[in-house]
């Protein structure tokens, strides 16, 4: 039990690191209304670029910065595939993701390794690592606050508002003189930049970047987003709250993760569990609308027929 409690701060840290990634998913999935599957690839790209820079003796700041730039480029490619070539967004993301697998292997191979780069805090200078969880906790906490504030400000500007409008109603946006294609590309770049930043942070925290570290990332991101929305929906429609909710969603995901691991669930089943959670959360509003409302209508009608009133 003590061991379980001791693992909770680590879960919060992981939640916040993946929260950065989830914020990226929030931008593409909720704001731009595009399910962008690039993230499974760009997450690794961010981690790999950062790890390679640190491995070669560069500062972790440069590593993080170049990781973000790499992520922006990933988003740019998906965006151009979608807007210039007219490939459906979901397919454009899959294509980039597939191509990134090769790119990521090549990036990692710069160091002479085949599929992962070790950058343990014991021998490398990194921003934080799991060797010191509490140090990590306040650092990632600051990153969380800065990011949420920065994007809150951004989406309040003319440019940010026009991106929100693009995701909301493209036809209207064009009629109001908004360059929707540019905004979609920009939005996807920002989204993947965040995802890559998250990858860079995770690589340093866990002490290595691995070609497989992004597998299923999109599902974790979606999981955090849908949990976050489910929670904040009843609190406030404020954008700051909604974005913070995404991080809370990611933390909840990792707390649940730690708990089911502690309870002895086969870790092989975790990805399936994540997919299940997303399916339930995404499907619930539909189920509610189609079945529950019908049930409640029938219920009320029965009452009406029985001579009651339907004011409840």
């Amino acid at each position: 039990m003590l061991q379980y409690l001791a693992s909770l701060p680590g879960a919060v840290v992981l939640g916040l690191i993946w929260g950065v990634m989830s914020l990226g998913v929030f931008i593409s999935y909720k704001i731009l209304d595009i399910p962008d599957l690039t993230v499974d690839g760009s997450f690794v790209t961010g981690g790999a670029v950062c790890a390679v820079v640190i491995f070669m003796g560069g500062s972790f700041w440069i590593g993080i910065l170049l990781g973000i730039v790499a992520g922006l480029l990933c988003g740019l490619i998906t965006g151009l595939l979608h807007t210039l070539l007219g490939i459906p967004a979901i397919l454009a993301g899959i294509l980039t993701q597939l191509a990134l697998w090769s790119v990521n292997l090549k990036i990692i191979s710069i160091t002479g390794q085949s599929s992962n780069v070790g950058i343990s805090a014991r021998s490398f200078d990194v921003i934080f690592s799991q060797l010191n969880v509490y140090d990590t906790l306040w650092k990632i906490g600051i990153i969380f606050v800065l990011l949420v504030l920065a994007f809150y400000v951004f989406f309040g500007t003319e440019l940010g508002a026009s991106i929100r409008a693009t995701g909301n109603n493209q036809k209207m946006s064009r009629a109001q003189g908004i360059n929707t294609k540019f905004n979609i590309v920009l939005g996807l770049m920002l989204s993947n930049g965040l995802v890559a930043l998250s990858g860079a942070l995770l690589a340093q925290y866990q002490g290595f970047a691995d070609i497989n570290m992004g597998r299923g990332a999109i599902v974790i991101g979606l999981c955090a987003v849908v949990i976050g929305i489910a929670i904040t929906k009843h609190i406030s429609p404020n954008f700051l709250v909604r974005m913070s909710g995404v991080f809370v969603g990611a933390i909840i995901y990792y707390l649940v993760y730690q708990t089911v691991v502690f309870l002895g669930l086969d870790t092989d089943l975790l990805k399936m569990l994540a997919a299940l959670v997303v399916a339930i959360f995404l499907g619930f509003p539909y189920l509610y609308k189609t079945y529950f409302s019908k049930w409640s209508r029938n219920h009320k009608n029965k009452k009406l027929a029985a001579g009651g009133n339907n004011n409840d």
Partner: peptide, 20 residues
């Protein structure tokens, strides 16, 4: 008000340095 602001900015560059 955000919708009106979008329309009000028609024909102008959407700036990163101005509130909507």
């Amino acid at each position: 008000i955000e919708n009106l602001a979008l329309a009000y900015g028609r024909g102008k560059t959407r700036s990163l340095f101005r509130w909507s």
